[in-house]
Design a protein around this nucleic acid. Structure first.
Length: 379
DNA sequence: AAGGCGTGGGC
DNA sequence: TGCCCAAGCCT
């Protein structure tokens, strides 16, 4: 049943321990599970959307996005027939935007190849874009009650502590090992509930910091707790700190419109709309010079104006130190280059902008409201 | 295998 | 404040 080919080092779990864990954890889950919007039924589409949104994202953050998204795209067919721009717009502010594009691609694939029914087979569902080992197991177990592991960060932490595992959970080999252990614990009759119970325990009790062992329903079976080393587990290599980068963002107008550019198709904020953005080498050029030169290459002649402010935005691996610069187009590129567009205030909210640009616009708006002669508008 | 990929919250 | 994290996936 398990898809993982594991090393021989994966131990066979003790039958009595497994029975006790199953009983106590499911009993606790039955009485303590949270009411979450994706738990109102087992619609595979609804489960799917929730699992994608929940990737690297907290439950409290996801809930409002999930509610809006399900209202906007109630069924798989609604999403499959939507424009990608609308899908990304519904994802605006949630981050990791490739999730939205991959999801849209995968949903269209399900509509085209599976008659709109989310596949219940591992070999089919795990081939879908954006559906990895965790998500495949989560959908198969929760929506179809099939006995597959769904090993996320919670489950790796919980099982590392239960079994006092010292393996580095940042490694793929460790995840596979824990999958092989988890599948032994999953009961035949309630795989979906058990997988969710594991994650619920990780989120509410077996937290990374200050785990609530005193009130934990399975503390009696936890080897790390028995050894008093629960705070040392799981072992996890630290992430590298974000690399600083000097970035210039332009507020470029022609008097009535603001210039937007589409980010490159690969890399950070791929294919997202943005204010014109360039990386600057402060040793060589001023922010204004860098931006003006870049726009010049695209055919825009721009007169750079005042520095509108500075701000910092931290991504998972990059730290943008941002200079906001005003500019006025003297000669616009004709025709307008690919990946550029002028927008007027009325069209503004139809495009999906990453939060870093909303922060920039917010800063500009705030600054201008306080300045003389500005009427509280962006134009 | 390891790094790229957003954002916001908690301490 | 700075750091770690949160229901991972892709390349």
């Amino acid at each position: 049943m398990s898809r993982t080919s594991t090393s021989s080092s994966v131990p066979q779990l003790d039958g009595g321990w497994v029975e006790a864990i199953r009983h106590d954890l499911l009993n606790w889950y039955d009485h303590n599970k949270r009411d979450l919007p994706w738990r109102i039924n087992r619609d595979p589409y609804r489960v799917w959307i929730s699992e994608i949104m929940l990737q690297q994202t907290r439950v409290d953050t996801v809930i409002p996005f999930y509610d809006r998204f399900m209202k906007r795209f109630p069924t798989l067919n609604d999403l499959a027939t939507a424009d990608e721009e609308d899908v990304v717009k519904a994802w605006e502010g949630l981050g990791y935007y490739s999730r939205a594009r991959n999801l849209h691609t995968a949903v269209k694939e399900v509509a085209a190849s599976y008659g709109g029914e989310v596949p219940a087979e591992w070999n089919e569902i795990s081939r879908l874009k954006g559906v990895g080992a965790y998500t495949a197991g989560a959908i198969l177990s929760i929506a179809y009650n099939r006995r597959f592991p769904a090993v996320d960060g919670n489950v790796m932490r919980v099982i590392s502590r239960w079994l006092s595992l010292k393996d580095d959970v940042a490694k793929v080999s460790t995840r596979k090992k824990i999958e092989a252990l988890a599948v032994q614990v999953i009961p035949e009759d309630r795989p979906g509930d058990f997988n969710q119970a594991l994650m619920e325990l990780g989120a509410l009790m077996c937290k990374p910091l200050n785990p609530a062992c005193e009130s934990c329903p399975v503390a009696a079976h936890c080897h790390a707790r028995q050894q008093g080393i629960q705070a040392e587990l799981p072992v996890k290599t630290k992430a590298k700190p974000p690399v600083p980068a000097a970035v210039t963002i332009g507020w470029i107008t022609d008097g009535n419109h603001i210039l937007l550019e589409k980010r490159p198709p690969e890399g950070l904020l791929a294919d997202m709309w943005s204010l014109p953005t360039v990386e600057t080498n402060p040793q060589e050029q001023t922010p204004g010079q860098t931006l003006r030169a870049t726009l010049q290459e695209r055919g825009f002649s721009v007169e750079m104006g005042a520095q509108l402010g500075e701000l910092e935005h931290i991504f998972s691996h990059r730290r943008w130190q941002i200079s906001l610069i005003e500019g006025v187009v003297v000669t616009t590129a004709e025709p307008l280059p690919d990946r550029y567009c002028w927008v007027s205030p009325g069209q503004w909210d139809q495009l999906a902008l990453p939060n870093v640009y909303h922060k920039a616009i917010q800063l500009i708006s705030t600054k201008r409201e306080g300045s003389e002669g500005f009427q509280g508008r962006l134009f």
